[in-house]
Design a protein around this nucleic acid. Structure first.
Length: 275
DNA sequence: AACAGTCGCAACCGCAACTTC
DNA sequence: AGAAGTTGCGGTTGCGACTGT
């Protein structure tokens, strides 16, 4: 299908927003709520395209936006998440309350990108960051950094094939993309299935909405089972990755990692498999 | 003080996923 | 089922602020 232009460009304001425009937009959204961006400018009486309004609201006017410098803890988290997710700024921003994807993207491009590059090019003091090469996938076997486009998915199905030793953990991750109206932020369920789990119900649904990732990763399902020759091996992650995610930093920095990030990561892994 | 170069952020652009009809 | 419309995302750009000469 052809793509229609997001808006007629004639007669619309462009460039920096004025205080008056900001006020009109935020007042309107406070009264009417977000959404229907395309028609919003007309209804609100703004000479802007809907896209521009959405961006302005999301990146600047939203009341829950955190202003000010990115803290060291946030920086660490960004680096860590970028290592896993690559340039999926919206997912990374989702783990940093009050920060926007645009802000994090800018911060990465202006600060962290260089910093991480420097650190990886010279042996350094920061062991945590030096554990793995940055940005580029270390190998085609187990890419740390995945593709750029995020999929919306509501469920991740993780399964260990019967009597099959896990030689490539990522091969056991399959993401199901929902066709429903849910969004990434509504991902709620991870279904974990294992042949080695001998209960009648060999799969398990976990409500993961607010579950701390480190808790989940240290649970039996991710630590592996003492059967079928996969003693102590996680189903999805090797030791390095487990340390990466469950190293306890999330508690230290006071930002609870929930499974949305993990689901996205698994989603990415599944996508890589499909290529 | 004036100019050039660099940096950082806000905004724009184009694409793809998703929804609606 | 498929076309048309909408939304969200990541990459890129423009411009003001800052810094060095």
């Amino acid at each position: 299908m052809g793509r229609s232009p997001c808006c007629a460009k004639e007669g619309l304001n462009r460039g920096a927003w004025t205080a008056a425009e900001d006020k009109i937009l935020s007042d309107y959204i406070k009264m009417q709520g977000e959404g229907k961006w395309r028609s919003l400018p007309k209804r609100a009486g703004l000479k802007r395209c809907g896209k521009s309004c959405r961006l302005r609201w999301l990146n600047y006017l939203r009341p829950d936006i955190k202003r000010g410098n990115i803290s060291h803890e946030e920086e660490e988290l960004i680096i860590r998440l970028h290592k896993l997710l690559g340039n999926r700024w919206s997912l990374i921003a989702g783990r940093l309350p009050g920060r926007t994807d645009n802000e994090i993207k800018n911060y990465w491009n202006t600060n962290l990108g260089k910093k991480v590059k420097n650190q990886s090019s010279q042996p350094s003091k920061n062991k945590q960051i030096q554990k793995k090469p940055e940005v580029e996938p270390p190998s085609p076997i187990r890419p740390n950094v995945i593709r750029t486009k995020a999929l919306r998915c509501t469920k991740v199905f993780i399964t260990t094939p019967p009597h099959q030793k896990v030689d490539n953990p990522s091969k056991n991750a399959v993401a199901e993309s929902s066709s429903g109206g849910e969004t990434e932020t509504q991902m709620r369920t991870v279904q974990v299935s294992s042949q080695t789990h001998q209960d009648d119900d060999s799969s398990m649904n976990l409500d993961v909405g607010e579950m701390c990732l480190s808790e989940l990763l240290t649970s039996d399902y991710f630590q592996g089972h003492d059967t079928d020759g996969i003693v102590g091996e996680p189903y999805l992650f090797n030791q390095e990755m487990m340390e990466d995610w469950s190293g306890g930093d999330c508690d230290q920095i006071g930002v609870g990692l929930d499974l949305q990030s993990l689901v996205s990561f698994l989603d990415s892994e599944a996508d890589w498999l499909g290529e």
